[in-house]
Amino acid sequence: MRQVYKLKRFLLTLRIWLATALLFGILYAIITVICTYLGFGTPLIFAVMAIVVVFAQYMLGPVMVEKVMGVHYVSHHEAPNLHAMVDELAMNAGIPKPKVGIAETSIPNAFAFGRTKGDGRVCVTRGILNLLDEEELKAVLGHEISHIRHNDMAVMTLISVVPLICYWIFISTLFGDRDSDAGIIGIAALVGYLLGQLLVLFVSRVREYYADEGSVEIGGKPHKLASALYKLVYGSANLDKRQVKEVEGVKAFFVNDISDAGNEINDLRQLDSNMDGVISESELAELRNMKTSIGTGSKIMELLSTHPNMVKRIKRLAELSDT
C-alpha cells in the first residue's frame, strides 16, 4: 500500500503544480494585456507584479481564514483529547505538530491551513465536536493533517487569488471608460476568471481524494472517515443559508462542500443499508462490489464544486478498506 500511496501522492503533486503553473500563466497573460494597452511595462515587470500579488495572498491568507472562521487556539489543558489525537496523527505523518484551534460555530466541519508544514494549523468547529464520535473525529483530523503533509493547503491559498484578481479586473472595466481597449481587457479578464475558477476547483477536488487516503495511512479507519463524511453532509444540509454565505470564501478548506450538501443527500441514502445514520465497517465492505448511482445533476454540480461527489469519495474509501 505504501508504494501505491507514494505513486498517487506524486501524481497529486504533479497535477497540482501543473494546474498552478497554468493559473500563474493566466495571471501573467492578463497583466501583460493590461500593461500593453496602457503602454507601459516589460515582461519582467509583469512577472514581478504577478509575484507581488500572489505573495501578498500567501502572507495574508491564514489571517483571513482565522478572521472569517473566528478561530481561537486551544492549549493541551483546554482540549486534551483533541491535542492527543493531533499529536498521534502528526507523528504518524512525520510532520511538526500543527497548532490546534476551535471555531465557535454550529457548522459541522474541520479545516487545515497555513503557509508551510511548520506553520500548519488544524481547526475544528463546535458543530463537528458535537456531531462525531471520537474515532470519526480522529479520521477527519487525519484528513486535515494529510493536507498539511502534502502542503496542498498552501498551494490552495496561493492559487485562489488568481481568479479573484481576474474578476476584480473584469468588474473594473464595467465601471470604467467604455472604449475598445477596456472591452478587450474586460473580455480577457472574464475568460481568465472562468478558466482560473475551473482550475482552482479541479485542484481542490483532487487534493481531497488524496487527503482521504492520507488519513487512512496515518491511522484513520476507512469506515470511520466514511461515516464522518456521511454525517457531515446531513449536518451541512440543515444549515441556515446565511451561515453558509458567511463562510463561502473559505469552504474550499472544509472537509465537504457545505453549499452542495442538500443535493448529495438523495444519492447518499443508497450507502446506508439499515438507515441508522452511520456507515459501518460491514456496509463499507459491501460497497466495494456494489454498483452505485449518481444523478446527472450531481455529476454536473461536481464540476463546479470544491469537493468530489461524496458517493465517489466513500466508494474510494471502500476500496482502501480492502488494502
Rank of each mutant, 00 (worst) to 15 (best):
V86C: 12
G220T: 01
K299A: 08
Q57K: 00
D87L: 09
T42R: 14
P222A: 04
D267I: 06
T323P: 12
L198Q: 06
K97A: 08
V48K: 06
S215M: 09
M290V: 04
P96C: 13
L239M: 14
R15S: 13
S305L: 00
L303W: 12
K315I: 08
F175N: 00
A50F: 06
R121Q: 15
K221G: 02
E248V: 07
R178V: 01
L38Y: 13
R288S: 11
T32Y: 14
A237Q: 06
S293H: 15
S180P: 03
E213V: 01
P80V: 06
S172N: 11
V216K: 02
A19D: 14
R207F: 07
I51D: 00
R178M: 02
I107D: 01
F24N: 08
I294T: 00
L137W: 00
L44S: 11
Y210R: 05
H76D: 11
I16P: 02
M1N: 14
W168S: 12
T116A: 04
G41N: 10
Y167H: 10
Y28I: 01
V54D: 05
V155C: 12
M310Y: 02
P80L: 03
R178D: 10
S204M: 11
M1F: 13
I159Q: 08
I184R: 14
A79E: 15
G186W: 08
S227N: 07
R15G: 15
I187N: 11
T105S: 12
H77F: 04
A154N: 11
T116N: 13
L60I: 05
Y28E: 12
L129P: 03
G186L: 06
I148R: 05
G196K: 05
Q3S: 10
L195R: 03
A56D: 05
A252F: 05
L18Y: 11
L174A: 12
L158M: 10
I107K: 02
P108N: 03
S280M: 03
L229H: 00
A188Y: 04
L232Y: 01
P308Y: 09
V54R: 04
Q197S: 04
E136T: 02
V191D: 06
I107N: 03
P62N: 14
A228L: 00
I218W: 08
Q270L: 07
V68A: 02
G114W: 06
R15C: 10
R207N: 15
